[in-house]
């Protein structure tokens, strides 16, 4: 078994424990941010499991799960949990509605593209993160060794592209940056902001450290995803495992009960 097959299984295991831990809190406290976190973490875990599966065999619906939940939606849902915790305003409900509709729309776009998947290029020898996208080669640029190319017309121009599972210009791929920007800003921004508030007031060091770890974990997957977009998908699984471990430890740190806790306006990843 190669490292690319082991890492996603480990991430799945960590995310499973993390998801159960968070959802247990939701069922006890009924606070919506726990539900959003739980949904996002479950999506993260499903994406990791799909990666692990696709390193062993092909299944189009596992790929559906991997792209929709693992690549597109999970960060936005986890981040929305942080926003729900930090901002108790009515407009957050509107954002929730937009997120739900947007997620359903992304699912619809993914369903539309399913019959067009270029499954002939799939191999278990490479991580799915290095195979999913069709990438146009710039003039003079050569395709990576072993990559299959296709000459086609894209936006009115004759281009050569490295073949990927998703066809060139798939609309579902255009939705991903919107979800990921929202997820990054709310999850990482929320954790940094919370850590800063506690740090400035010089209280609850566990929540400072917890939020720093959560932000670092979310950034590690953000960086790995960006590198994947740039064609270096080999770091994705390591980034995911780092993210899963750091965020779980950070959450546990932040949620650690404190004696005589000081009332705070924002308690990200704790409560």
């Amino acid at each position: 078994m190669s490292i690319n097959q082991v890492l996603p299984f480990l991430s799945t295991l960590v995310m499973l424990v993390f998801t159960v831990y968070v959802l247990q809190r939701f069922f006890v406290r009924r606070a919506p941010h726990f539900l959003f976190w739980g949904i996002g973490l479950a999506m993260f875990g499903a994406g990791s499991f799909a990666e692990a599966y696709l390193s062993l065999a092909w299944n189009p619906w596992v790929f559906f799960v991997w792209y929709l939940f693992g690549a597109a939606l999970n960060a936005a849902w986890i981040g929305h949990g942080t926003l729900s915790l930090l901002v108790r305003k009515p407009w957050v409900h509107a954002i929730t509605a937009i997120l739900v509709v947007g997620s359903l729309y992304a699912g619809y776009l993914m369903l539309q593209v399913m019959p067009k998947l270029d499954t002939a290029i799939f191999t278990t020898a490479k991580p799915i993160s290095e195979q999913y996208g069709t990438k146009v080669l710039d003039p003079g640029q050569t395709a990576p060794v072993g990559a299959k190319t296709v000459s086609t017309t894209y936006r009115g121009e004759a281009v050569t592209a490295v073949r990927g599972l998703l066809p060139l210009g798939s609309p579902v791929r255009l939705t991903t940056p919107f979800f990921n920007i929202y997820g990054l800003l709310t999850l990482v921004g929320g954790a940094i902001w919370s850590a800063y508030l506690f740090w400035r007031k010089r209280v609850l060091p566990n929540r400072v450290i917890g939020n720093v770890l959560i932000a670092a974990g979310a950034l590690s997957i953000g960086l790995a995803s960006t590198l994947t977009r740039l064609g270096n998908g080999q770091f994705l699984y390591l980034g995911e495992l780092f993210a899963a471990i750091l965020m779980f430890i950070g959450f546990r740190f932040a949620a650690r009960p404190q004696p005589n806790e000081v009332a705070q306006p924002a308690i990200a990843a704790a409560d």
């Binding site: 940056p177 990054l184 800003l185 990482v188 940094i192 932000a215 953000g222 960086l223 960006t226 977009r229």
Partner: peptide
């Protein structure tokens, strides 16, 4: 982390 966050958002 704030700088990295801004970089990632600009990339996206």
């Amino acid at each position: 982390m704030g700088i990295v966050l801004v970089g990632l958002v600009l990339f996206a």
